[in-house]
Computed example of a mutant assay.
Amino acid sequence: MAVTTGQLRQWKQDKRPIITLTAWDYAIAQVLDEAEVDLILVGDSLAMSILGHQTTLPITLDEMIHHASAVYRGVKRALVVCDLPFLSYQESTTQAIHSAGRVLKETGVSAVKLEGGYPAIVETIAQLTAIGIPVMGHIGLTPQSVHRLGYRQQGKTQEDADRIFNEAIALSQAGVFSIVLEHIPSDLAAIITDKLPIPTIGIGAGNRCDGQVLVTADLLGLTKKQPPFAKSYVNLREIITQAVHNYAKEVQEKNFPQ
């Protein structure tokens, strides 16, 4: 049975951790879904891990729709969420509705994710949820704000911690079904998680969130440089390199094909 936003909320009440990973194509999406990942995020992180950009900023809405469509076709069970990329929702609520509507209409995914918890974004999200578009929030380290925030941990001062806490409350009241908490102190993430009626998904935010997310390329050891909070469970770069060397050797020695 397909995972729903309501089920995620129930899992929070049941204290059942929510397993989240990112995907960028049909094949990876199939693998994650068959492994019973609960939530698959088509994150704009694919701009860096898959398309080779230095930040997430260059990726376009059309590119996100292209990848999200491929991911959706590979999934039967997991809830699929797609990031709205930089400058596809910040200009106005009308722009955000148009972009989110295109994503849902053209890809088949169930929800969109927007970064930030400042008042204008909260108002935009409230408008999206009011017309029936499911939205996931994202606060703390928000990569689309890299030129202002960098990639350093957020919420370390009391002032910043209070701001992030208040953003979480405002987003919950605006109707988001879940919030990603990225690279914030674990104590702050735990306070937010305990306060909110909706699930929190942590990345670099400690183990007291309602679920965890990793960039799948990091988990598989495909990226050369990982953030400090990531973990590789296998080194596919090494495995793939060796496989290619073996193939090349057989071709050179005319042992393939036999």
Rank of each mutant, 00 (worst) to 15 (best):
M1A: 13
Q7W: 04
Q10G: 00
W11P: 03
D14P: 02
I18D: 11
I19H: 12
I19C: 11
T20D: 10
T22K: 15
A29L: 06
V31A: 14
E34V: 00
E34S: 08
A35K: 15
V37T: 13
D38G: 11
L39I: 05
G43P: 03
D44P: 04
A47T: 01
M48Q: 15
S49T: 15
I50P: 00
I50T: 12
Q54F: 04
T55V: 07
T56C: 11
P58M: 07
D62S: 15
D62Y: 06
I65L: 04
I65D: 14
S69C: 05
Y72E: 15
K76C: 03
R77H: 15
R77E: 07
R77Q: 14
A78M: 05
V81M: 06
C82S: 15
D83S: 06
D83C: 07
L84C: 06
L84Y: 06
S88G: 05
Q90H: 12
S92G: 07
T93S: 03
I97A: 07
H98C: 06
K105Y: 09
E106H: 07
T107L: 03
V109M: 08
V112W: 10
E115M: 05
Y118Q: 15
A120R: 11
V122W: 12
E123A: 13
L128I: 11
L128S: 02
I131R: 04
I131M: 05
I133H: 08
P134L: 14
M136F: 08
G140Y: 02
G140T: 02
L141K: 12
T142F: 08
T142N: 15
P143R: 08
Q144H: 10
Q144M: 12
V146S: 06
V146Q: 04
L149R: 13
L149P: 00
R152M: 11
R152E: 14
Q153C: 10
G155M: 04
D162R: 07
D162V: 00
R163Y: 13
F165W: 14
F165V: 02
F165S: 04
E167V: 00
I169N: 07
L171H: 05
L171K: 10
Q173R: 14
S178R: 13
S178L: 12
S178W: 12
I179A: 04
V180D: 11
L181E: 03
E182D: 10
P185D: 06
S186K: 14
S186W: 01
P197S: 11
I201V: 06
G206P: 08
G206M: 04
N207F: 10
C209T: 14
T216H: 11
A217R: 12
G221P: 02
L222A: 04
L222M: 12
T223M: 02
K225L: 05
Q226Y: 01
F229L: 07
A230M: 03
Y233D: 01
N235S: 10
I240E: 14
T241R: 15
H245S: 14
Y247I: 15
Q252C: 09
Q252F: 01
K254I: 07
K254H: 13
N255K: 13
P257A: 01
P257W: 05
